[in-house]
Design a protein around this nucleic acid. Structure first.
Length: 424
RNA sequence: GGAGAGGUACCGAAGUGGUCGCAACGGGCCCGCCUCGAAAGCGGGUUGGGGCCUAAACAGCCCCACGUGGGUUCGAAUCCCACCCUCUCCGCCA
């Protein structure tokens, strides 16, 4: 959410930013609401000031055992008028809030301008895509042959876009989760968190999933609970409506959670395999920083996520998303893309973003630099470290052998408890 | 799910209709005095949001907030209603 006063003073800047994003937002609506609000507010506050004065006088009169009937009489009716105007302000406030909650974040100046993912800019590339001396199989075929992935039975018990992992498949997924969590907590100093997998509406508003993107979420019927689409939601909201101690910043959290996404509107996309599922596992990284450090921190967080791929010896590249491809709440995003032989392309496996104070404003996450210092909004960041299912896909496809077996990357072997997966 | 207790500032806690958000009192923290320095003692300070005024202001004036939302009243932390959360006991349950 943007700051009302900031919007008021930076209309031209905001207009340009929204155009870069390709967002449709009416600034006129903001102007008229904002002006109307301040006008009514001035009126009702004047009345309230008079009422407060009169109350004092009535109290003083009564204390001296004098007659206050005249004044009380005069005040009668003022209360109703105030109530009326208060309701008016509340109505305008609600509209203004709705407007503010649906306006996306302003991109950082370092974000490349562009319309679609075509305009994203590759930042770096690590590792070489392997040259196969046989035709590499897509992971769903590998999974079927090895008997470790079962999409048919998943469809039976749940539906499309679900998977059942069995045997070495399930073990590999679990090994990846543990490997990632250990790496980030032991070597990158993140604090491990195991949060609820359902959150309330307030939390979803705090990180920006609501009110705009309800269609992407699963909601638990007859409750105020939503299934989390990413651990970003519970982790960032951990400090909702809190004051953090500036000396404690940055705060870094890492969490494994399943993620639930409706994938509405993605019919026909990635229908085969594990790439796009209603439920998938992810290790998520979340950081809270002071404003002046957040962009430097984004570089570090992205590096932390990349380290997973480096240790697993998987080729990848990092791209800076352009203004048109940026997520709603993000001020700047790097996507990490892993090489997938069956697609002959790099596919997203992590998205690392700096939200600036956008989420902090919505969720009221503030900090003080010291005793008695003024309150400031913290900056929030997050990134996948990594999407576990897609990492498993990358291993199956990149580490497959001619005989159909899988060579487990060395770093993962202690977690997996073996060096390879062979058909049983 | 049932019964009871409670949600007040950084923490504890008082306040049950009248100048109380300059919300008592303790504690903490910050500043000053004292001291060679510290402790003790003494004095002062210590919430957030919004509006007005400003070139701007953490300068001034004003409004709002005592879990949340309504209601009663000239006036609500205080009375009434609904809801949320925490704690204790009972029931059910992995």
């Amino acid at each position: 959410m943007l700051d009302t006063a900031w919007v008021r003073d930076h209309l031209d800047l905001l207009e340009r930013a929204l155009r870069d994003r390709g967002a449709q937002v009416s600034l006129d609506e903001f102007n008229s609401l904002d002006e109307a609000r301040r006008k009514v507010l001035r009126e009702v506050e004047t009345l309230k000031a008079r009422r407060n004065k009169a109350s004092e006088q009535i109290a003083a009169l009564k204390k001296d055992k004098k007659d206050a009937a005249a004044l009380i009489d005069e005040m009668r009716g003022l209360g109703d008028r105030i109530k009326e105007l208060d309701a008016k302000v509340a109505a305008i406030d609600a509209s203004l809030e709705e407007w503010l909650l649906t306006v996306p974040n302003v991109p950082h100046e370092s974000v490349p301008r562009g319309k679609t993912s075509e305009d994203n800019v590759e930042v770096r590339r690590r590792g070489q895509p392997r040259k196969f001396d046989f035709k590499p199989l897509p992971h769903w075929e590998i999974g079927a042959r090895l008997g470790i992935l079962d999409f048919e039975r998943a469809a039976k018990i749940a539906g499309a876009r679900f998977a059942v992992y069995t045997g070495a498949g399930a073990r590999l997924e679990r090994a990846l989760i543990n490997f990632m969590l250990d790496l980030h907590t032991r070597e990158h100093a993140y604090t491990e968190v195991l949060p609820p997998f359902m959150v309330n509406t307030k939390a979803m508003i705090g990180t920006g999933q609501l009110p705009k993107f309800a269609d992407d979420l699963f909601r638990v019927e007859k409750t105020d609970y939503w299934l989390i689409p990413t651990a970003e939601v519970p982790l960032t909201n951990l400090h909702r409506e809190e004051f953090l101690d500036g000396k404690q910043l940055p705060i870094s959290y890492a969490a494994y959670t399943p993620c639930f996404r409706s994938e509405a509107g993605s019919y026909g996309k990635d229908v085969k395999g594990l790439i796009r599922q209603h439920q998938f596992n992810k290790v998520e990284l979340v950081k809270f920083t002071v404003p002046e450090d957040s962009y430097e921190t984004l570089e570090r967080l992205t590096r932390d996520a990349e380290t997973v791929l480096e240790r697993l010896e998987l080729p990848y590249r990092v791209v800076a998303l352009c203004t048109g491809d940026l997520g709603f709440a993000s001020a700047k995003t790097y996507d990490i893309e892993v090489w997938l032989p069956s697609y002959e392309a790099y596919r997203e496996i992590s998205s690392c973003s700096n939200f600036g104070d956008f989420q902090a404003r919505r969720a009221s996450i503030r900090f003080r630099r010291g005793q008695g210092a003024k309150a400031e909004f913290a900056h929030t960041l997050n990134g996948s470290g990594l999407a576990v299912g897609r990492t498993l896909v990358a291993i199956l496809e990149n580490c497959q052998r001619r005989d159909g077996s899988i060579a487990i990357p060395e770093a993962l072997q202690p977690y997996f408890g073996g060096k390879e997966i062979v058909a049983t």
